[in-house]
Simulated scan of single mutants.
Amino acid sequence: MIEKTRFAPSPNGWLHLGHAYSAIFASDTAKELGGHFLLRIEDIDIGRCRPEYEQTIYEDLAWLGLTWEMPVRRQSEHFADYEAALKRLRNMGLAYPCFATRKEISDAIEASGISHARWPADPDGAPIYPGLYKDLSLSELNHLMWEGRTYAWRLDMKKALAMAETKAGGPITFLEENGGPRGQKGRLPIDPMLFGDVIIARKDVPTSYHLAVTVDDALQNVTVVTRGQDLFPATYIHRLLQVLLDLPEPRYRHHGLIRDKNGRRLSKSAKDMGLRELRMTGHTPADIRRLIGLMP
Rank of each mutant, 00 (worst) to 15 (best):
L161T: 02
L294Y: 01
D204V: 03
H210P: 07
P296H: 13
I46T: 15
A160P: 07
H16V: 04
Q220T: 03
F99I: 05
R90D: 05
A117I: 11
L89D: 00
A84I: 04
E249P: 04
A270R: 14
E77H: 15
M1N: 06
V213Q: 01
I128F: 11
N221S: 11
E52L: 09
H255L: 11
P296A: 12
A201S: 14
T5M: 10
G274S: 14
G170S: 06
E147K: 15
A212Q: 05
R251H: 10
R74F: 10
P171K: 14
T101L: 13
H36P: 07
D246C: 05
W68S: 02
K271C: 08
D107K: 07
T67W: 08
Q220M: 14
W63C: 11
M163I: 06
F99P: 09
V243D: 01
R264E: 13
R290S: 08
T101P: 12
P130S: 01
L66H: 08
A108C: 10
K134D: 00
D217P: 07
A8G: 05
E42F: 13
A62C: 10
L275P: 08
L132W: 13
H116W: 13
R40Y: 04
F232S: 07
L294S: 03
D246I: 03
P285F: 10
L211S: 03
M145E: 07
V224G: 04
A121E: 09
D28M: 15
K159R: 13
S267D: 06
D272V: 05
A218P: 06
D260Y: 11
H238Y: 01
K31C: 12
L219P: 04
L141W: 05
H255D: 01
Q229Y: 06
G282Y: 13
T235I: 13
L161C: 08
E110M: 10
D204S: 13
S112C: 09
P189A: 00
T166N: 11
S112A: 07
D260C: 11
A168K: 04
P11E: 00
A80T: 08
V213F: 05
I190N: 01
L240W: 02
R264T: 09
P51D: 03
K134T: 03
D81Y: 14
W153M: 08
G274N: 02
R289V: 07
L17D: 00
I46Q: 15
F99R: 01
R48Y: 11
I114T: 14
Q75P: 12
P9Y: 01
